[in-house]
Structures are given as C-alpha cells and as structure tokens.
Design a protein around this nucleic acid. Structure first.
Length: 765
DNA sequence: TACTAAGCTCTTTTT
DNA sequence: GAGCTTAGTA
C-alpha cells in the first residue's frame, strides 16, 4: 500500500507521539519520507536512531513492509536495527527487506538465478575458497606464486569487479594490462578470466560476484529490473560513505522509479576504501539527485565535550571532507589519558589493571569497557592481562565460528551435496577423513576436468572411464557412491537429519571424537554445535522463507559475524579492531598500540589518501568513547617474531594538547618542534623519576641516531642503540630488507632487531 | 600415501 | 609468532 496523499499531508503537519524523543533535525529527517534524502550524520548524533524511526514511521503510515528495502554493512547492524524497529512497531518488522547488501542481493539472485545462467542453489565462495582457487590455477599454469601472490591477485580482481570491470574489459584496457606488464605480471588478465570461468563452472559466486551479478541482472533484464524497481518503494542505505561503485549502481537503479532513496552516512567515518568503498558516492549525492533534501545531524549525544572536541581537532587535519560542525551540550568530562608502556606485554598488563581499578572505583560492569586496536593480532597481550585479573572478556573478529577448519569441513560436505560442481568444497573433503585419495590423484582429476571442460565431480563420478586415475579408481567410486546417497536424501530428509547422517556416515564425527586433546575435544563440540545450529534453523518458524540446506548454507556463507552468542548476558570487556567497532559505543575506551607504523599502518605512510583514511579510523576509535578515553602505546613490540623499538603515533601529537592529560603517565608532551613534512619527530620521553624499580626503563632516544644506518655492522662490534643502550653484536644474518642483528645488550640482555628499523650506531669496530 | 620436522613468509582492516 | 609449504622418512 502506498503512502496516501492524505497521510502524507498529515505527516507534514502533526508530530506523531512516537517521534517525541527525537530532536528537531532528527525528526525532520525522519518525516521527509518522499524523494531523495541524504542524512549527513556526525559520530554519536543518532544516525541509527533516525534510520530506525524513519522505517518505523513508514510502517505506522501503513506502508507495506515488503516494499521497504534497508541495506546495512554488517549483519550485526541489520539485526540491531530490526530489533529496534520491532520494539517500535511489532512483528511487522520481520517482513522488511533488510540485511547486508550481500545477503539481500544473494536472496534476489537465488530467485532469479536462471536469468543469469546460475544454478538456483549456487555456492558462495568465501575468501579462503577464492584464494585456494587462485592457487590451483597458478599451479596448473606453472606460474610463480611469488610474482603472482594469491592475496594480491585476489584483491586486484576484487578491485576490478567492484568497479564493474569484467575480465574481458580488463584485458582490453591498455592502462591496466600495461601496469601488469610493468610489474611482471603480464598474465594477470588471463588469470582473471580463468578465475571467472572456474567460478562459473563450479556454480559458485564470490563475495564480489554477488554484487556484480545483481548489477548485471538488473541491467540486462529490463523485466526483472522493472519488477524489483516497482517492488521497492522505499530504499534506505546505511553507512553510505562505505558503498562502492557496484553497490551504488545497483541502488541507484532500484530507486530509479520511485526516487525514494535515503542515504545515511558520515564521510569522516569512511574506512573501507580497501574494499572498494568510494567516498565520492557520498560527496556527490547532491549532484546525482539535484532535488535531494540534505539533513545534517551535528549534535553529539554520546561523548563528553573533551572527546567530541578532541575528535574534531583530529579530523580537521584531513583535506578531503564535507563541512560539518559536530558539537555537544554534554559536560566537558575528563581529559584524555595517554600512557606509555615499555612493551606490548606491559601494555596488556597495564590496561587490564587500569580497567580493574576503574571498575572498582566507579562500580562499573565489565561491559562498560572496550579495548580497540588496529590489527586482530594485537589482542593477545590484553587477553593475558585480563585473564590474570579474572576479568571476563570477549574477543570479536579474528577467526569466526564458521571459519574454523572442522566447521568448514562439514560445510564443504553439505555444499557438495547441494551443488556437486562446487570445486573448492570437493577438493577440501575428498580425502578427509583420509580415504587414500592423495594429492597426485587430485591433481589428475583437476587435469582431466580441464581437458574435458567439466567439473571435478563429473570426473570423480565417472572415475572408471579415466584410465589415468589408475589404482585410485575404487576409492573414488566409493566416494562418489557415498555422495550420491547423500544427494538422494535431499528430497527425503530435512537439512538437520541429512547433516547428522552425513557427519556419522563420512566418519567425520568419529575422527574428531578420537582426538582427546583439548583442541580435539573443542573441535568435536564445535561440530555438534553446528549440527544443533542446523536443527535450530530448520525448526525456526518465525519466518516464512524456506528452510532447506541450500538456504542454511547461504545464510552461513554470508554470516561471518560471531555466531549467536553462547550467552548474550555475559558481562565482558570488549576486545575488537577499530573497524569492527564502528557503530558501537562504550563508557570507557582504550585505544591501544598507538604507534607509528602500526597505527597509522606502515602501508599508509606513503600516500596522503591512505593516511587520511587512517586518520578517519582514529576518529572512529576516539568517538566510540562516551566518558573516558585512554590512548596507550608501547616503546617496544614483538613483531615478525622479534622485538622492535616503537615510536608514539603522530595521531597523539595531532590532538589539541589542551585535551590531553599526560602528566599522570610519567611523561609530557614536547613543545611542538618544527619538523619536516616527511620526518616525524617522536615525543621526548621524560624519564620516570617516581619510586619503584628503575632497572628496565630504556634511556631517552637520541635524535642523532639514524634509522638503518649500520651497513658495516659485524660480529664482535660494540654498538649503542637508541633505546637499549650499549651492547655487543653476536650475529648478523639475512639480506637486504630482512637483515637482522642479534645483540647482547649490557642492560637488557640479548635481543634480535630488524636492522631496517633499528636506530643505533657503531661505537667500536 | 601419510606423517613429522624444519623452513619460509607474512604480517591491515571485512562482506 | 603463527600458519603454511616443503623435504624427508616410514
């Protein structure tokens, strides 16, 4: 049912009571339901609130939930929004078309699969599958995987796809192929084409294909396009600053008929350009839709004055941005604490201790605290620290449940049952549990499949016809018979019974049960949990959609989030990357690892654009905090298996000094010394003169030391290191970039240092 | 073919 | 340090 004229008129005049809680600009944005709308929302300004109320408002006006499309970036955001809307309007919210770009479009693609010549039950390759496929092709073609690093190849393919460049277009684009030739990867284009063909042959789509094929579907099939365009009367996009070109094209097309498109975003929080996000989308919305209404939400309700203003002082260093003036009427609050620790382990201990103290002093639950870091690998020292103090914590991200080996094994079997042409699934489990089908045989199968231009399964399924397979024929036949028996069950059994039978029949459960190590037991338990997850999925009757194995697999493939938490009421400290923290807020936030080369990441240092993105990331981190913010860094850190000296991040320096509280932490901010554009001068660390053991405090850095200027270093020499002082060289090994020196320091004992980063000089040859 | 030990590489962020 | 690949052995 469309919004009637009368309803619309009324909505413009009266303020419905359920919108009482919104402030003026928020309410205006909510009530402007017709036409293109852009909501530019600063951090903590109630962006999600506006979006949820807007959808609730539409529903209250009698708009059919099936005609509202709301797209988010993460499953978590979608789930949260659905729950909030449900609270406002009730069960109707279930029928909204709401989810991540990938999950919604995968659903559409499944319905329209035959139009783009894919099986209805196509497989979704995750990045591991994609990478493994690339590796397989490289091996077949005898290409060196050092020149063609699978990760790089994949990200370049992804970049092309996100910009709507097909392999054919890629190959005919001289600029792109020129780049490849220059870098010695002349066959990249062919590789791209082969990768595409192999995915197609396997009836599989990778993450990017889901978007790409949706775009293709709508562009090449006007009837289909017409249908969906008319279906979705209202289109809403969250985190618009992070959309890429394909997503932009799709949503633009979908909204073309009704023109009721509403985008919400904050250019200052655009942190996904590595995934193809195009900040231009938000910067040029008004050009695309000249009659667009723009609403700015600039009042921050989340954080203290200090945090809001400090965040402003950070982001003003970026050139590329929309003008905004984020402010708050909240109290000024505490200053930002900056802490130096002598090592990453010490940092973990200190942060845990600090959380413990704050918790006691202010009687706070664990969940009031979050530790945010740049990379997942940093979580370790904090986990240790928290464990020692018995503080319950939860690490988000990293390896999710569905990425575990044992889970992927079971899923691969199930994938193969649903879609026998799925090559990655087949390769994964054809010899697991071991059934005498070794790598030689697998290579031969791949070879035969290429020769016959058919799938691996076709070869396995007709093993007898291929003399090349020789002695493995029987093992292969048995495998094929078993798989066929599972496939036959698809029509007779539900997904849970099939999966349970399969897990027993293949010997998977037995193999896992035999392993009595701690990890082995947990693997077994995980598989059991997966099975009960399938059961839950099958028996869930809150939604109308089909509950088959294929549907389960699709949901799982796109659900890289945490699994449904074991106990959502557990009171835990949150540990996550800054990327994962977007959209969340915590009373106390610790942003840790604030070191040059780590945050900002080393890779971002050469390029202004990249550095600006890192800065936006820092902005995101800072604005997660409601009450108190702590920035911490270490002066040495274990990286690449060795201890490296670290300098404080330039970002600390960029915060207006008046917001920082440095004295308590034992050092003060230096006077802003003039410095060159490129070189970054670190803080002068004031020596801790307080009580307590002093033994291991490194001496202050000497600005005369030059990085990596130790070409003549050899065994037996005496050196002076910027931080560790005097020592004797024990060994020098490795070459060029990898050159390391093991030095026995007088005060600190033996350390191995990367010479590229080491700041030291030779005192005595 | 299967298993173990040693060696090598990669260190960003996620659907 | 971790994860993966390779080489070597049963």
């Amino acid at each position: 049912m469309a919004l009637s004229e009368a309803n619309f008129e009324r909505s413009m005049q009266e303020i419905p009571p359920y919108l009482d809680k919104l402030n003026e600009p928020q309410r205006a944005a909510v009530m402007q339901t017709e036409g293109p709308v852009m909501i530019v929302a600063g951090a903590g300004s109630g962006k999600t609130r506006v979006l949820t109320f807007r959808i609730a408002h539409l529903l209250k006006q009698g708009v059919d939930p099936f005609s509202i499309l709301a797209l988010t970036f993460t499953n978590k955001a979608a789930r949260e929004m659905r729950e909030r809307i449900e609270k406002l309007v009730g069960g109707e919210a279930r029928n909204l078309w709401m989810g991540t770009f990938h999950s919604v479009f995968a659903r559409i693609l499944r319905m329209e699969a035959e139009k783009i010549a894919y099986p209805r039950d196509f497989t979704i390759y995750d990045s591991d599958d994609s990478k493994s496929l690339i590796k397989t092709i490289l091996k077949e073609w005898n290409l060196d995987d050092k020149t063609y690093k699978p990760g790089h190849v994949l990200s370049r393919i992804s970049m092309a796809k996100n910009n709507l460049i097909s392999s054919a277009e890629y190959i005919s684009a001289d600029e792109l192929t020129g780049e490849d030739r220059k870098s010695g990867r002349a066959r990249f284009g062919e590789l791209f084409a082969e990768y595409e063909a192999r995915c197609k042959r396997a009836g599989a789509m990778d993450f990017d294909d889901i978007l790409l094929n949706t775009e293709k579907l709508l562009r090449l099939h006007p009837d289909v396009c017409h249908k969906w365009q008319h279906k979705f009367k209202f289109v809403m996009l969250d985190e618009y600053q992070d959309t890429n070109r394909v997503q932009y094209m799709i949503t633009k097309r979908l909204a073309a008929v009704h023109q009721n498109i509403c985008v919400v975003g904050d250019d200052a929080q655009s942190i996904y350009s590595f995934r193809g996000a195009n900040i231009q989308n938000i910067l040029s919305f008004e050009r695309d839709y000249p009659d667009a209404r723009v609403f700015k939400l600039e009042q921050n309700y989340r954080s203290t004055g200090t945090i809001v203003q400090a965040a402003g002082s950070i982001i003003k260093n970026n050139k590329n941005q929309l003008k905004k003036n984020v402010w708050t009427s909240n109290e000024q609050g505490e200053k930002i604490r900056v802490v130096r620790n002598i090592s990453d382990n010490e940092e973990g201990r200190w942060v845990a201790q600090s959380i413990f103290e704050e918790k006691m002093r202010h009687r706070l639950p664990n969940k009031a605290f979050a530790i945010l870091y740049r990379t997942n690998a940093q979580s370790r020292s904090f986990e240790e620290g928290l464990r020692k103090l018995n503080l319950d914590y939860k690490v988000y991200g990293g390896l999710s449940f569905y990425q575990r080996k044992e889970i992927k094994d079971v899923l691969s079997y199930l994938r193969l049952v649903v879609n026998p042409t799925d090559e990655e699934a087949l390769k994964r489990i054809i010899n697991y549990p071991a059934r005498k089908i070794g790598s030689t045989t697998i290579d031969r199968i791949i070879l035969l499949a290429s020769e016959h231009a058919c799938s691996l399964w076709d070869i396995v399924n007709s093993a007898r016809k291929h003399p090349l397979l020789g002695s493995s024929t029987l093992a292969l036949e048995n495998f094929a018979i078993m798989m066929r028996s599972f496939q036959a069950m698809l029509t007779t059994h539900n997904a849970y019974n099939l999966a349970l039978h399969l897990a027993k029949q293949t010997g998977l459960l037995k193999t896992l049960a035999e392993d009595k190590t701690v990890e082995g037991i947990s693997r077994y338990e995980n598989v059991v949990e997966l099975l009960s997850g399938i059961q839950e999925f099958v028996e869930d009757d809150t939604s109308e959609s089909e509950k088959g194995l294929a549907e389960f697999l699709q949901e799982v493939a796109l659900f890289t989030d945490e699994r449904k938490d074991d106990d959502p009421n557990r009171d835990t400290v949150t540990l996550m990357t800054i990327h994962a923290s977007k959209g969340l807020e915590f009373p106390h936030v610790y942003v840790v690892g604030m070191e040059e080369n780590l945050f900002p990441s080393q890779m971002a240092l050469n390029d202004r654009q990249d550095l600006e993105e890192e800065r936006r990331l820092f902005y995101v981190a800072v604005t997660r905090a409601e009450q108190k913010l702590t920035l911490s860094f270490a002066t040495t850190r274990l990286r690449f298996g060795q201890i490296l000296p670290c300098e404080p991040s330039r970002f600390i320096d960029e915060i207006d000094a008046s917001f920082l509280d440095m004295d308590k932490s034992g050092f003060k901010k230096p006077s802003p010394a003039p410095r060159a554009e490129t070189a970054y001068s670190p803080f002068q660390i004031k020596r801790n003169t307080g009580a307590g053991p002093q033994g291991n405090t490194p001496p202050p850095p000497d600005p005369d030391f030059k990085e990596g200027d130790i070409s003549g270093l050899a065994e037996g020499m005496r050196v002076q290191h910027q931080r560790f002082g005097y020592g004797e060289v024990q060994r020098v090994e490795g070459d060029e970039d990898q050159r390391k020196a093991t030095i026995l320091f007088d005060q600190f004992g033996e350390k191995t240092l990367m010479m590229k980063f080491a700041k030291m000089r030779i005192v005595e040859s």
